[in-house]
């Protein structure tokens, strides 16, 4: 299934993973969770602070569906 991934701020360094196209599109098996996806990309879970599925707050155990837009944020605290 097709999933659009957006890695924000310091997570951008993981965007060069071969599973992710230059447009941020991933082709994934169905019934995958956000946590599974994060593990496949080799992103340490502790680097992820916020998860958004289709613009709404989600969790590592949230299911990812066809054509979902997934956004991952690290902690951000600069002022």
């Amino acid at each position: 299934m097709r999933v659009e991934l957006r890695l924000f701020a310091s997570l951008g360094k993981y965007a060069s993973h071969p599973m992710i196209s230059t447009e941020g599109i991933m082709d994934l098996p169905s019934l995958i969770t956000v946590g599974d996806l994060v593990d496949r990309l080799g992103i340490p879970r502790q680097e992820i602070k916020l998860i958004f599925l289709n613009g709404v707050h989600a969790h590592l155990d949230s299911k990812v569906n066809e054509n979902d837009r997934l956004g991952l944020f690290p902690p951000i605290g600069g002022g």
Binding site: A9, S10, L11, P44, R45, Q46, E47, K49, P74, P75, I76, G77, G78
Partner: peptide, 10 residues
């Protein structure tokens, strides 16, 4: 597990 430092530190 300890949370990573804020992205501003990176």
């Amino acid at each position: 597990c300890a949370e990573s430092p804020g992205a501003e530190h990176v």
